[in-house]
Write a protein that binds this DNA or RNA. Structure first.
Length: 573
DNA sequence: TTTACATGCCAC
DNA sequence: AAACGTGGCATGTAAA
């Protein structure tokens, strides 16, 4: 079992692609070159041979500028690597640690800073690059290095500098772990985008047709939506476009129920026959526009020939573009397709291929458990040793599980209104160290300061703080930033837990057939797509990864991190 | 016609 | 019950 940490030991190999299938390699011992640069005409073959040539033991850590530019070509060619050091992600983390979030973090920018040269802006990476349908084997050079620069040399220099900057930090081991798992996440993201989430086009169409009617032609509304518009018009007395908030506001006033907004929870309180029609329209219109037929045509690739017998299942793959570290807290974002918000209504279309299963693993109650672990609050940690943390909290608080949960969430999000205030007081008395932890983060934020996650990811300093605290609503804005930093210390560390888990799981999984392995990741949940006979292997790998993650991050904390596991043929189950 | 912002809903 | 954190995205609307 190889460690996840990224200390500068072991063999590393710096890689630069030439954009024509070849490239240059240079072996490093730690950060220092041990030999000359080597030119290879077939980069895929060279990487494959080094990665797999020496057996399973101790693979190298590939050092490259941008995983999203180098790795997709390797994956498409069937080559997967176990470890890398991603210079751009590392630069972003290091700059962030120095509260310099807004400075460019490309290889070229880092190299320019090293040489006191003008720092280039980061290139904008267009949508959909690096994963699918890429004609060239490797991306063109977007390194932002000045023309004529020795790119391999620049890479080696920046990599060594990053190693030194990490070593100079107060907690270098933790930060090195962060760098290693961020890089591993970048590998996993490319692999998941390549494989895609199994998506049954026939089931998706059936779900849509049942709810909306058949797919309309041209720019028509689907039948069910058109009927709802007609009935809304009848009830109101004139035609209303429910997609227009302004028209809905006027219509509500017209029927004698003026409302301040058309949000569904506002409308729900109104007792009038038009309300259920409007709410139903909103729900279905959302499904139609966000995850309807045209969404499917754009984001789901069909993997089997669709013709032939009519009963034949139509297998597809939803291939989102993950943006590793795309959220300030270190959670991932996605671009296009809305992968982070697959609505419950269409999850019935996420089904394994015949003879395969989905293994779903969900880290339950991750954020309060993380808070218990990082704050060292013994009472909360004792509750977090249970399968259901909130049930134990309820016995502390005196009764209701739902209220205990509201109190806990209020502590982590900074909610003060509604029921939260008295609950917070109880929480503060029962879990003083946990509450101190988030309260301190909130105070730091309220005064414009920065906070850090467990491994050292750093919150961005607020922009224009001088103006903020001089503004008429300075107090409100201070408190808003305090809520952000309060939540950051928990959410960012939970994201780290998930990232370490993902990296560990990637190592623990056995070699899978084509398209098998981790196919989806969202915040605190992973989905595997595996042949039935490998399902239990997958389950065991998840358990091993979970156990390793707790130990790697928090040593011998009593806090447990239970995983909700299910092996099914359908994500909706 | 294009662009920028507002609104509102989806997810964790 | 509905202002409490992080986001993506479609649609409508008004400005450019």
């Amino acid at each position: 079992m190889s460690p996840l940490g990224g200390r500068l030991g072991g063999m590393r190999i710096a890689v630069v692609a030439d954009g024509e299938g070849g490239g240059w390699l240079r072996e490093l011992d730690g950060a220092s070159p041990t030999g000359p640069a080597r030119r290879v005409d077939d980069l895929v073959a060279a990487v494959r041979e080094i990665e797999y040539g020496s057996g399973e033991a101790d693979p190298p850590r590939w050092v490259w500028a941008v995983t999203e530019e180098v790795y997709p070509g390797l994956v498409r060619a069937g080559v997967r690597v176990r470890r890398c050091h991603d210079v751009e992600h590392t630069e972003a983390l290091l700059l962030g640690h120095a509260a310099r979030h807004y400075e460019p973090h490309s290889l070229g920018a880092a190299w320019a800073r090293l040489h006191d040269l003008p720092v280039p802006d980061d290139p904008v990476r267009p949508l959909g690059e690096g994963t699918t349908a890429q004609p060239a084997l490797f991306e063109a050079d977007r390194s932002t290095l000045p023309p004529g620069t020795d790119r391999l040399q620049a890479l080696v220099e920046v990599h060594r500098d990053q190693g030194e900057r990490i070593a100079a930090l107060l907690a270098p081991e933790r930060f090195a772990l962060l760098v290693a798992v961020e890089s591993a996440g970048a590998l996993a993201a490319v692999e998941m985008s390549h494989d895609g989430l199994p998506w049954r086009l026939d089931d998706h169409d059936r779900i849509l047709t049942e709810l909306l009617g058949p797919r309309p032609t041209g720019g028509q509304r689907p039948r069910v939506l058109a009927e709802l518009v007609a009935r809304i018009g009848e009830v109101v007395g004139h035609e209303v476009n429910p997609d227009s908030p302004a028209q809905v506001l006027r219509a509500m006033a017209w029927v004698g129920h003026p409302v301040e907004s058309t949000r569904s929870w506002v409308l729900e309180r109104i007792d009038h026959p038009v309300v259920p029609l409007l709410l139903r329209y909103k729900e279905l219109a959302r499904l139609y526009s966000a995850n309807g037929w045209s969404w499917s045509e754009t984001w789901v690739r069909e993997v089997e020939p669709g013709g032939g017998e009519t009963e034949r299942p139509r297998l597809g793959r939803f291939q989102p573009d993950y943006v590793v570290g795309g959220v300030v807290s270190g959670r991932w974002a996605t671009r296009g397709g809305g992968a982070l918000q697959i609505p419950k209504a269409v999850r019935g279309a996420v089904r394994s291929d015949p003879g395969w299963v989905l293994v779903r693993a969900d880290a339950g109650q991750l954020e309060p458990r993380v808070l218990a672990a990082v704050s060292g609050d013994d009472t909360l940690a004792a509750a977090a040793a249970e399968d259901d943390l909130y049930t134990r909290l309820a016995t502390h608080v005196g009764g209701d599980r739902d209220r205990a949960k509201i109190g806990m969430l209020a502590a982590m999000y900074g909610q003060t209104s509604g029921d939260a205030a008295p609950l917070l007081a109880t929480m503060r008395r029962l879990y003083p160290r946990a509450l101190d932890y988030v309260d301190a983060a909130a105070r730091t934020g309220e005064s414009g300061g920065i906070v850090r996650s467990w491994l050292g990811r750093t919150s961005p300093p607020p922009r224009g703080w001088a103006a903020t605290i001089a503004a008429p609503d300075a107090d409100r804005r201070r408190r808003a930033h305090g809520r952000f930093t309060r939540n950051f210390v928990v959410q960012a560390t939970a994201a780290e837990w998930a990232l370490v888990f993902l990296a560990a799981l990637r190592q623990e999984l056995p070699v899978m057939p084509q398209g098998g392995g981790i196919v989806f990741f969202v915040h605190d949940e992973v989905v595997l797509h595996v042949p039935e006979e490998l399902a239990q292997e997958g389950v065991r790998a998840i358990h091993r990864a979970r156990d390793r993650t707790g130990r790697i991050l928090f040593k011998d904390t009593p806090v447990r991190f239970p995983i909700d596991l299910s092996v099914t043929d359908c994500y909706a189950k």
